[in-house]
Amino acid sequence: MAKVMINQERCKGCGLCTSVCPKKIIVTDLETLNDKGYRPAKVTEPDKCIGCAFCATICPDCVITIYK
């Protein structure tokens, strides 16, 4: 089991994490706008997360924390 925490306020919606998740469970959250007007990333099916931390590794703003 693993858990992905995304600090949606600090996310700039760049989408890099969505392009590397092997389980395809990170997408751009089209219902949310953060204070800076970005559409942050979000995890769709948290239970499928394998804790590989690919998303956090490629995140340019260090907004993703991984627990395993």
Binding site: K3, K12, C14, G51, A53, T57, T65, Y67, K68
Partner: peptide
């Protein structure tokens, strides 16, 4: 569960000024 990936200590808590998706932030 244990935290296995987090902001490194010597990276300050400052919001990085780079554009969205710029890999300067990664480096």
């Amino acid at each position: 569960m244990e935290k296995i990936f987090d902001r490194p200590h010597s990276l300050s808590d400052f919001v990085l000024s780079y554009c969205p998706g710029c890999t300067h932030g990664v480096i």
